[in-house]
């Protein structure tokens, strides 16, 4: 019963709803501007393009060691840091060899202009979407946890039978609303995207074939697992929603830990800023375990959204960094939320 009330409080909150609507509106505007900016040739791709697609087996004879050496040289890496980078690309070589052996010959779609679509969908739109749903989830959790304190109903509720456990119900409601908002914002934005840009011919094509180059780089777009475009999109949506849930847990921990809504918001933003800034410090060089581990945090996962399920460039030292990072972030923030709740049980309400 209480869950339904808490869910309704959040889901029908004018602030949350209007922000979600604003996100969708901003995405619509962004996509319309991008649509107008694309050349007619880009927009007018058709099944004929696919039929005329040119086989170009980029995996055949491809050596990932070249990527490793490029990063090592460009970033002047030495010692174990360089070895970590080499180790990662050695592992990626196995994937390339397997693809090549399987005759997985990529084809060129969209008249060879795939990078425009790739940058637009996974480089820009998904980055915006991840940020939007993350912030919405953070806000939902902060609103939920600090709602009673802001309304002055905290003491009456904490003295009720449910007591401080109402915050557990609020966590469930926040997570549910965050997931729902994420589905809504991502779903509607992608609906707009696919209404403007016809992807129907590539849904079942291999994502490495469709997006033949990594974002902003000349190397191939090599995923650790073989994905179709549709599969990759679903997986990316999953990571995006997962990151939103991380933000929700962070918001919950801050909302419970801080005694004021403003302080809680400030704390959450500070935590996100710290997560973003620390890897830029000199004590976190590229290729180091420390940078790799820190790079698993939600902010860096968001920052590297265009490379999910691929090597993750030189920032990441491990394969499947997005899955690893998401699991680690969920575990860490869930622990933080649990710790905050435990401290609430012992905290006095003055």
């Amino acid at each position: 019963m209480t869950f339904i009330y808490e869910f309704k409080k959040l889901a029908l909150s004018p602030l949350v709803l209007s922000l979600a609507a604003l996100c969708i509106l901003v995405n619509l505007m962004f996509l319309l501007v991008e649509y107008d900016g694309m050349t007619p040739q880009n927009q007018d791709h058709s099944a004929a393009d696919a039929l005329a697609a040119e086989a170009a087996n980029i995996f055949e004879g491809y050596r990932t060691a070249g990527i490793a050496e490029f990063y090592i040289s460009a970033l002047r890496l030495t010692g174990t840091n360089a070895e970590h980078i080499r180790g990662k690309y050695e592992a990626l070589q196995l994937v390339v060899d397997r693809r090549a052996a399987g005759g997985d010959a990529p084809r060129t779609y969209f008249d060879g202009q795939t990078s425009d679509f790739q940058v637009l969908l996974f480089g820009k739109l998904f980055m915006y979407l991840s940020a939007e749903v993350g912030l919405l989830a953070l806000l939902a959790a902060l609103l939920s946890t600090t709602h009673e304190q802001m309304r002055g109903t905290e003491s009456a509720i904490y003295a009720s039978k449910t007591g401080r456990r109402v915050q557990v119900v609020k966590l469930c409601a926040s997570l549910s609303v965050s997931a729902l908002l994420s589905v809504l914002v991502i779903g509607l934005s992608l609906l707009i995207f696919f209404a403007l840009f016809d992807f129907s011919i590539v849904w079942n094509a291999n994502v490495s074939s469709v997006f033949d180059h990594a974002l902003g780089e000349t190397k191939p777009f090599i995923t650790w697992h073989s994905f179709t475009v549709a599969g990759y999109l679903w997986a990316a949506i999953g990571i995006g929603i997962g990151l939103a849930l991380c933000c929700c847990l962070l918001g919950y921990a801050c909302g419970i830990g801080a005694r004021s809504a403003y302080l809680a918001f400030g704390t959450a933003v500070s935590v996100l800023a710290i997560l973003y800034l620390i890897p830029r410090a000199p004590f976190m060089p590229y290729g180091s375990i420390a940078r790799g581990a820190w790079g698993l945090n939600p902010v860096w996962l968001w920052k590297s959204s265009g490379t999910w399920f691929t090597d993750g460039r030189a920032d990441m030292v491990w394969a499947h960094f997005e899955t690893l990072g998401l699991c680690a972030s969920l575990a860490v923030f869930a622990a933080a939320a649990g710790f905050a709740y435990r401290s609430l049980q012992r905290r006095e309400l003055h």
Partner: peptide, 15 residues
């Protein structure tokens, strides 16, 4: 807590 009813000094409510 199931046995108590409590009216705080600054009773808050949902406007």
């Amino acid at each position: 807590r199931d046995m108590i009813g409590y009216l705080p000094q600054d009773f808050g409510y949902y406007r």
